[in-house]
Design a protein around this nucleic acid. Structure first.
Lengths: 120, 120
DNA sequence: TATCTATATTGATGTCTATCTATAAGTTTG
DNA sequence: CAAACTTATAGATAGACATCAATATAGATA
């Protein structure tokens, strides 16, 4: 995309680079906020593991399935689920007493697409 | 991977689900910590945009290229770069007065691979 | 109706984070 | 060597976050 940076020849052998004019904020501020919220939600070991558990559950994972795997209280797990939900990473649906959680594949695909647009 | 959850038949038409025995922590704790650190680093709008800028720079992006795009002080940008570096997302190399930043493609590929293993 | 169960909410607390100003460290130029 | 420039570090502060105990909500069961 960008070409090697131009350099200003100075006395002797030293060169001085100029600031790269080709770099642009390809991610708009509001998109950056949305994506960052999703990344932040995954940026906690327990939430990442919860998210992975839900991804295995075929849309029927409930909180009690999750709590078993962690040495944390129920309110803490509930909090982490809310963070994932608010970030749009999962959707939750009440089914009687239980709440079933499922992955939001759309946002996962968006993140993967974003990352694939980044190469050095 | 998992099959539909077994249900315990009760009186009438109601059923009661059992806890899903098939869910397992596929992400080990230490891997979860490592991945979460990377996600957390990307979990800030400015850092995500910085990361995108660096991805455009062909390994020659320096801090002054980045500061231009944000209404933040130089120490703050320096801090965000350190967070990205500590998370293994970028590598930085001193070149005279300047420090050149480049993407660590390996970890990006790892994240993409992790996400691709998650489907509902 | 009373009880049990699954989940959510509230409030408290200690820790972490983002940002700034001021300053230091190291490099290049004059 | 001194001045200018790029980046990093230290210290301070306001706000956010993770966690827990206690409690509330609401559906299911007896």
């Amino acid at each position: 995309m960008t070409s090697p940076l131009p350099r200003v020849k100075l006395e002797g052998s030293s060169t001085r680079r100029t600031c790269d004019p080709n770099l642009q904020l390809r991610i708009a501020s509001d998109a950056a906020v949305t994506f960052a919220e999703a990344f932040k939600a995954l940026g906690h070991p327990v939430r990442l593991q919860i998210f992975d558990l839900i991804s295995q559950g075929l849309g029927e994972t409930c909180s009690c399935d999750i709590e078993q795997h962690f040495d944390l209280t129920q309110p803490t797990i509930s909090h982490h689920l809310k963070v994932l939900r608010d970030a749009g990473l999962i959707a939750s649906e009440s089914r009687g007493v239980w709440v079933h959680h499922r992955l939001n594949q759309t946002i996962i695909d968006s993140i993967r697409s974003l990352l694939s647009s980044m190469h050095p």
